[in-house]
């Protein structure tokens, strides 16, 4: 092997990174797989086999949580693709104060999620919030965005889209900018209009960017926790619980073995959804 493929770096170069990888990633992963099989109080543990997994699947609110997690992940991921692409195309065109608008779109990404959550919790307050105050101006009675169990999850998802759209837009801008000019020139010679450019050049050729946005936002959506906790704490009742918030509540209650088992399950769910999806998405990418 070494004769055919010359090694770029000597072996000892890899040792520091290798040690960090083993200590910070491999060991904790192995340890958490082990503790998911125990009743664990942080001080001592006893081995109970798969009982934690049985208990986790028996959680009465697990299925609401699973459903919410899927709705949240698909909704936020889809909206980020659509609006990220549109904003990306818009910001790639020659517009005045484009840089300013770019920073405006990216600004929410820089703000702490908890701060965003608390801010929107107040904006969405049913009687004192600005959103319903604005609607009242037109004589409309605004909905209870976070208090109505049918609306709360969608409200949080929309805030997540607002907060994450900047990253999606930046990825789309990079993708669109990397499309060679020749395609547009050929299109002009052939007499194509802006719509043709969008549909036949930008969409197929920004596919790698789109796939990155889908993967990142879907994984982010599947393990979403901080925004939900800041805005609703999984409530009212259990109506905005996600797998991650269910696990957090178990951890808070001191069920360390059970919550570790929950994390192992969440890890498997993310892998089971993301791996085939990644294969499917990259297969459809075209050569530039």
């Amino acid at each position: 092997m070494t004769k055919v493929f010359k090694r770029v770096y000597p072996f000892y170069f890899l040792i520091p990174a290798g040690i960090f990888y083993i200590l910070l990633f491999l060991v904790p992963t192995a340890v958490s797989f082990f503790f998911s099989l125990t009743r664990w109080s942080l001080m001592d543990w006893s081995f109970i086999g798969l009982d934690n997994f049985v208990t986790f699947f028996k959680e009465p609110w697990l299925y609401t949580g699973l459903q919410n997690t899927m709705i949240f992940a698909i909704l936020t991921s889809g909206l980020k693709v659509v609006f990220g692409l549109l904003l990306g195309v818009f910001l790639c065109s020659r517009i005045k104060s484009g840089e300013f608008i770019k920073s405006l779109v990216f600004f929410p990404v820089l703000v702490s999620t908890i701060a965003v959550g608390i801010t929107f919790e107040n904006l969405m307050h049913p009687s004192n919030g600005i959103i319903n105050g604005f609607l009242a101006w037109f004589g409309l009675k605004g909905p209870n965005l976070l208090g109505d169990p049918d609306l709360a999850l969608v409200s949080v998802a929309l805030v997540d889209v607002w907060k994450g759209i900047g990253i999606a837009t930046v990825i789309f801008i990079a993708g669109i900018k990397s499309i060679p000019e020749e395609y547009s020139e050929a299109l002009q010679i052939d007499g194509g209009n802006a719509w043709h450019k969008f549909w036949n050049i930008i969409i197929p050729l920004s596919r790698p960017a789109m796939n990155t946005v889908i993967m990142l936002s879907l994984i982010g959506g599947l393990k979403t926790f901080d925004l939900i906790w800041a805005m609703t704490k999984g409530g009212p009742g259990f109506s905005t619980d996600t797998i991650a918030s269910i696990i957090f509540k178990q951890y808070q209650a001191g069920f360390y073995g059970l919550s570790t088992a929950g994390n192992v399950i969440l890890f498997l769910i993310v892998i089971l959804i993301v791996m085939p999806l990644m294969k499917l998405l990259t297969r459809n990418e075209v050569e530039m």
């Binding site: 009212p236 009742g237 259990f238 178990q250």
Partner: peptide, 16 residues
């Protein structure tokens, strides 16, 4: 039980 808060909110709000 750790979920008492959520459960009583559901009862008080008339969800359950």
């Amino acid at each position: 039980g750790p979920n008492l808060i959520n459960i009583v909110v559901e009862v008080g709000a008339g969800f359950r």
